[in-house]
Amino acid sequence: MAVASVPHEGQADQLYVETRALRLQGFLLFLVSDLVLFSSFIFAYMYLRNSGQGWPPPGITRPAIALGGLNAAILFGSGATMHYALENFKRGNFIRYAWLLIFTIILGALFLGGQAIEYTTLFREHITWAGSGIFGASFFTLTGMHGFHVLCGIIYLTILLLQSVHGVYDKQRYFGLTAGTLYWHFVDVIWVVLFSIFYLV
């Protein structure tokens, strides 16, 4: 019974492979529970919206669709850049990876900027979180929660960028980047849903 007493070549890789599987599943489960959180609020929104007061409720103007569409395109675009950032990292193309990641972060920040403009416009029309009935409650809660996720994502990606500059990840071990990409895609995809239910229907 000579148990793994001497760490040998490749054992560390074995360790990485196994912990990676654990961490990947754990991270996906985290995303699932986050999805449930969003779904619950979306259920609340749908429930209130269909409670027979008409939508938008009297006295409420919806946020402008033009800016909303542009903002959506920006966020979806950042998803595409993030995807290719990871692809390039996998292929060892570090410079292109870094630029794409920076570009992703900038697009994310732009999205938040667009969101801020949208909020200011609504505030100017006296549509607020607490003072505008169920529209204000559901719109600001859901988009605010999503915006908070984007903000966290920006911070997360910045940390990943700094880490990768310091050589934390290499071609064999880059689970952190995979997780970051998963998270960023998740935030994008949530916006597909939120965009549809708030701006399109």
Partner: peptide, 18 residues
């Protein structure tokens, strides 16, 4: 923030569902 208060458009039954 009005979610459940019926006088402000919310729905108390929604809480029961959730």
């Amino acid at each position: 923030v009005p979610f459940y208060d019926p006088t402000r458009g919310g729905s108390p039954v929604m809480w029961q569902h959730m």
